[in-house]
């Protein structure tokens, strides 16, 4: 939609947009280009500026088996949290959408997880899963030593995945419910007239109709599980035991701020950026093609 009633003024729009442009240039474009610069250079240990390193930083990462470990782990983590969180939220939204009596109370509670800071949820879940405490840890009373995320890396990763999925329920639920409520009643009624039972209608009518939302959430969830896991991991496991919960973001933080390897961290940042940008582009392309289902 193009607007016709423009104001004409030479200086004013620039004055209005300047503060945001300045902020974006200083805190977005400068750091992003800085990351590029660092990724292709190497800082001299005795000072005296950076020397050109070409692709060496990237090659060093690609030859690092530990790095590939974090990539595979991040991908696994992202797929699990996305699937789990979206599945739970979609199930709840589909049933809430039937709007039986008293549904409103359930509906407003399902949104709550969104309000919780990841580290706060991390602390709560750490207690729930603590091997010495009396919740999940109680299982150790029956089979001693069967549950100990402080030693068992798979259990530690599983614990974080569960927590991250729980945190995502609220957000996903809001979007799924909004999409389901946009479907005209007449369509579902027509389906019912033709003899489609509720489950059949869910699978053959509602799901295809909310496909754009499903896809949007899929991308958003994938991006957030690649980038947003720091708060959880830092409070729950700190990447341990033995690096078994170290994902890409955590390694960037660790190499950059603890190891002071800016070039390596920058190269890793660039790879993560490319990943996020690629996911975003997939979304744009797909949405453009498929969203006009009417």
């Amino acid at each position: 939609m193009e607007r016709r009633a423009y104001y004409r003024n030479k200086g004013l729009p620039w004055l209005l947009i300047a503060p945001q442009l300045l902020l974006v240039l200083v805190f977005f474009y400068w750091p992003t280009s800085q990351a590029l610069y660092w990724a292709f250079t190497l800082e001299q240990p005795w000072g005296g500026g950076n020397s050109w390193a070409g692709w060496d930083n990237f090659l060093a990462i690609f030859h690092d088996r530990e790095y590939w470990g974090t990539v595979v782990r991040s991908a696994f983590y992202a797929c699990c949290t996305t699937a789990l969180s979206m599945f739970m939220a979609l199930t709840l939204a589909v049933f809430v959408d039937r709007s039986l009596k008293g549904t409103r109370a359930f509906q407003s509670v399902y949104v709550w997880p969104y309000a919780i800071a990841a580290p706060a949820a991390g602390v709560a879940f750490r207690f729930i899963f603590a091997p010495e405490a009396g919740l999940v840890g109680a299982i150790n009373g029956l089979w001693p030593g069967i549950w100990n995320p402080a030693i068992n890396g798979y259990q530690a990763l599983g614990m974080i995945i569960v927590c991250h999925s729980w945190l995502g329920i609220g957000y996903n639920f809001i979007f799924f419910l909004a999409a389901l409520q946009m479907i005209p009643r007449s369509i579902s009624e027509a389906g019912a007239m033709d003899g489609a039972r509720p489950v059949r209608r869910m699978l053959d009518l509602q799901l295809p109709l909310i496909a754009p939302t499903v896809f949007f959430l899929l991308i958003i969830n994938l991006i957030s599980s690649f980038t947003d896991s720091f708060g959880l991991i830092d409070t729950m496991t700190e990447g341990g035991p033995f690096g078994s919960t170290e994902v890409m973001v955590y390694k960037i933080y660790f190499d950059g701020f603890k190891g002071l390897d800016y070039s390596g961290a920058a190269a890793q940042s660039i790879i993560l950026m490319l990943l996020v940008v690629a996911l975003t582009f997939v979304q744009f392309r797909w949405v453009e093609k498929r969203v006009h289902y009417n």
Binding site: V24, V26, F27, F28, W30, P31, T32, Q34, A35, W38, I223, T227, D228, F230, V249, I252, Y253, G256, F257, Y262, A265, A266, S269, L272, M273, V276, V277, T280
Partner: peptide, 17 residues
Amino acid sequence: ATLMLPLEVRIVPTYSI
């Protein structure tokens, strides 16, 4: 374009700025 990259992925250079 800033919508594309969350703060977490450019954290090291943002810290230096």
